[in-house]
Amino acid sequence: MSKSAAGYINKILDPLLAKRAGVSTALITAWGEIVGHDLAEMSMPVKVRWPARIDEDDAFQPGTLLVAAEGMAALHLQHQTGEVIDRVNAFMGYRAIARIKLTQKPVEKKKPKKRLKPITEGEKRKINRLADGIEDEALKESLKRFGQSVIRDKK
Rank of each mutant, 00 (worst) to 15 (best):
M44F: 05
Q104R: 11
I85Q: 09
I119W: 02
I134S: 06
V88Q: 12
A52K: 13
W31M: 09
Q104H: 02
I34Y: 10
L16A: 15
A52Y: 09
G133Y: 01
S43E: 05
L13K: 05
H37R: 15
G36W: 10
G71I: 03
I119L: 15
H79I: 07
L66Y: 04
K3G: 04
G122V: 13
D86N: 15
K144D: 04
W31H: 06
A30F: 02
Q78E: 14
R95D: 15
G133Q: 09
D57T: 14
G82L: 09
V67S: 04
E83C: 02
W50S: 03
A6Y: 01
A6E: 09
K124A: 13
N128I: 11
R95F: 11
G22L: 02
N89C: 10
I97T: 03
K109D: 03
H79K: 07
E108K: 08
K109M: 10
G22T: 03
A52G: 06
A74E: 13
V67H: 01
L66G: 01
S149V: 10
R125M: 14
D136L: 03
R145N: 04
E108T: 06
A6M: 10
G36E: 07
S2K: 14
D38M: 05
Q148C: 09
D58W: 05
I34Q: 05
K113S: 11
A18K: 14
H79Y: 12
P51N: 03
D55L: 12
L130D: 08
L116H: 01
M42A: 13
E33Q: 15
M42Q: 14
A30W: 02
K109R: 15
D57Q: 09
R49G: 06
P112S: 12
I54Q: 09
D132S: 15
K117A: 15
P112G: 05
K3D: 06
A96K: 14
G36L: 08
R125Y: 05
T29C: 01
P106F: 00
R95M: 12
I9Y: 12
T81C: 07
G122I: 12
H76M: 13
N128G: 10
A73Q: 05
I85H: 08
I85N: 03
D58M: 13
A52R: 10
Y94G: 12
V67G: 00
L77E: 11
E137W: 00
A26F: 07
I134N: 04
Q104E: 13
P51Q: 08
T25W: 07
K3I: 11
L27D: 02
A59T: 08
I34G: 09
H79G: 06
D153L: 12
E141I: 02
H79W: 10
L17P: 02
L75Q: 14
I12R: 05
I97E: 00
